[in-house]
């Protein structure tokens, strides 16, 4: 749990480059590793070309007469101006093409498909059954088994978003009206952060998600439990919270499977208590932040579709938060 609570602080650190939770420079799988290698090759190549250009420019300015003639000779102009770029860019094209094919081939190995739909400003996540129908829905968090490539079908419900977990692979846009695919592979257990990488409106910066890479056993157990109905409220406060949740009409937008709440406008809350964050990576997940979000969503994420339920009294608000936190 300490790890969980440490996440948002970790996010800030990640941006400062201290924690590898969201870094393309610390790949956690071979897909991201191949992209990283390409990045390293391009950086080294670009540095060499840059140095060459600077040195030649320096010589051109400080040239002796003989050297100037050598630099300006047709042979040098053709060699450095046409042949060298052609060779370098052709090599890069070939590298990129081979890499792209390798990444695409991963898709054939993927046994699991997850459909992710970008919505302003959160991620709808549906794990698909083998026949392609949604097995269950969740939101703002994906889990994947270590060592097994997972295929993602990416769609958008409104504007263009971009799906990017830097530690696990390249980014790809979610475009309204079409389905893009990408295959991610995690080879190291861990919690990674994904972020919308295409400006999609005022709360674009607060459109993140968590990717949790787990052992295949842990993943299998989670998959089986996640598809089930919500945990029944047990304590007096949870029961009261469930009642208040229903009375406030939360079920018009949110689904809690196994209850009357079956809304599809907002994130599925069936197992919301088991997620690391709420409001798409905006806040760590516990009763306190859940209460804050319910009562003050418009201050936390202005423009989001979630209204601020500011008419609830203290104990009612608390009970809803405690109920939501109990939905593990």
């Amino acid at each position: 749990m300490t790890r969980v609570r440490g996440l948002p602080a970790g996010l800030a650190l990640a941006l400062a480059g201290c924690t590898p939770i969201q870094s393309a420079l610390d790949p956690a799988g071979s897909n991201a590793g191949m992209v990283f290698d390409l990045g390293v090759a391009m950086t080294i190549g670009a540095t060499l070309v840059c140095v060459l250009v600077v040195v030649l420019a320096w010589r051109a300015v400080r040239r002796s007469r003989a050297e100037g003639a050598w630099l300006a000779s047709p042979r040098m102009v053709i060699a450095l101006g046409a042949v060298l770029p052609a060779v370098v860019l052709t090599a890069l094209l070939a590298y990129g093409f081979v890499l792209d094919r390798q990444l695409a081939a991963e898709e054939d190995r993927a046994a699991l498909t997850v459909r992710v739909t970008g919505e302003q400003w959160w991620w709808r996540v549906a794990y698909l059954a083998p026949d392609g129908s949604p097995a269950f829905e969740t939101a703002n968090e994906i889990r994947l088994p270590v060592g097994q490539p997972v295929r993602f079908e990416l769609e958008s419900a409104d504007v263009i978003h971009s799906f990017w977990v830097p530690a696990l692979g390249g980014k790809i846009d979610l475009i309204p009206g079409r389905t893009n695919t990408v295959t991610l592979l995690a080879e190291r257990e861990g919690i990674y952060r994904g972020q919308c990488a295409e400006f999609c409106g005022t709360q674009h910066a607060l459109m993140a998600f968590m990717a949790r890479a787990e052992t295949p056993e842990d993943f299998g157990a989670w998959f089986a439990a996640e598809g089930g109905d919500a945990r029944q409220p047990e304590t007096e406060e949870e029961v009261a919270g469930h009642g208040a949740f229903v009375a406030a009409g939360c079920g018009a937008c949110h689904a809690v499977r196994g209850t009357a709440a079956a809304g599809t406008i907002g994130p599925d809350l069936t197992h919301v208590g088991s997620r690391l964050t709420i409001a798409a990576g905006t806040l760590p997940n516990h009763a306190g932040t859940l209460a804050a979000w319910v009562t003050d969503a418009q201050a936390i994420k202005p423009g989001a579709r979630m209204p601020s339920f500011d008419e609830l009294d203290g104990p009612t608000l608390r009970s809803i938060a405690v109920y939501l936190a109990s939905l593990r």
């Binding site: 609570r5 440490g6 996440l7 948002p8 602080a9 970790g10 800030a12 806040l283 760590p284 516990h286 306190g288 932040t289 209460a291 804050a292 979000w293 009562t295 003050d296 201050a299 936390i300």
Partner: peptide
């Protein structure tokens, strides 16, 4: 790390500007 700032304004904590 708990994001107490979701509800409270807290001097010295980044983005802690809650008004609940």
């Amino acid at each position: 790390s708990l994001a107490c700032g979701a509800c409270h304004s807290i001097p010295g904590i980044r983005a802690a500007d809650g008004t609940v």
